[in-house]
Amino acid sequence: MASPSKYLAHYSEGLRAQVQGLIDDGRLGEVLARRYPEGHEIQSNAALYEFAMGIKRAKMSQSKPLSKVRYCDKISTLNHALGLHTYATRVQGAKLKTKHELRVASVFKQGPLAFLEMIVVHELAHLRERDHDKAFYRLCEHMLPEYHQVEFDMRMWLTWRELEGKPVRERKAKKAKKPKPE
């Protein structure tokens, strides 16, 4: 079976089959809306910065300081990512100064608060752990105990958004269409 989306490609065949079943039944959006009914009011870069700093103060108070946190329209198309942690080191006299920035894909302005929180937690974890290893995901779980479930649900939400503009009949018709022999 082909994966329902690029967002779910690394999950097991069984999970992808379940998601495909929800897509085929036209129920994926309904299931996600039931699980995550609330949106959020974090629409500006200033509000996003305050939100990220609140999580950082509560869960990672001893980590490196952040200079910027902002939404970015180009992040998913340029970097094939949903968020980015960047840093720049500059020489200032005899010292090296490093500035850390977090960028979050603008698509999360419309999503549930849990998805935005998961992305921010992921990027904040990169302040301590650069690689996506066990220590990194332990830190993510510490900051957001249901991290892995929220990440999976966020990937289903992105899949649903990708398919949202197409009527279900059109998707099924494309699937069932076979090339004619000449």
Rank of each mutant, 00 (worst) to 15 (best):
Q92L: 15
D133V: 00
P145K: 12
F152S: 06
A105Y: 00
H148A: 15
V107G: 12
G83W: 01
A114W: 02
E129D: 06
T86N: 04
K99P: 00
H148I: 07
R103F: 08
I119P: 03
E151F: 00
E129H: 13
L116W: 02
N79M: 06
V107L: 14
V120P: 05
M118W: 00
A114D: 15
H80W: 07
K99Y: 09
V150L: 04
E151V: 13
D153Y: 03
Q92F: 11
T77V: 10
Y87V: 03
M118E: 13
V104Q: 03
L127I: 08
Y137G: 10
I119L: 13
V150N: 05
D133N: 11
E146W: 07
F152I: 05
M143R: 12
V120R: 06
A94C: 04
L78N: 13
L127K: 05
Y87Q: 13
Q149W: 04
V120S: 07
H122T: 02
K99H: 14
M118F: 00
S76E: 14
I75P: 01
P145F: 07
D133W: 00
K95C: 04
V91I: 14
K74P: 00
G93C: 10
P145T: 11
S76P: 08
K134W: 00
L116E: 05
L127M: 07
M118D: 08
D153N: 10
A114K: 12
A88M: 09
V121Y: 04
L96V: 07
L102Y: 01
T98A: 11
R130T: 07
M154R: 02
M143K: 10
L116G: 04
L96Q: 13
L84Q: 01
T86A: 05
Y87G: 06
L127C: 09
L113D: 06
H126I: 08
Q149N: 15
V91Q: 14
V121H: 06
L84I: 02
V150T: 11
D153K: 07
H132Y: 01
K109E: 10
L144F: 09
H80C: 12
E123N: 02
S76C: 11
V104P: 04
A125I: 03
Y147M: 09
E117M: 07
Y147R: 11
Y137R: 06
T86S: 12
M143P: 10
A135C: 02
L78P: 01
Q92P: 04
E151W: 01
Q110V: 07
G83N: 02
K95G: 03
H80A: 15
H132K: 02
A88T: 15
R128H: 10
E129C: 13
R155Q: 14
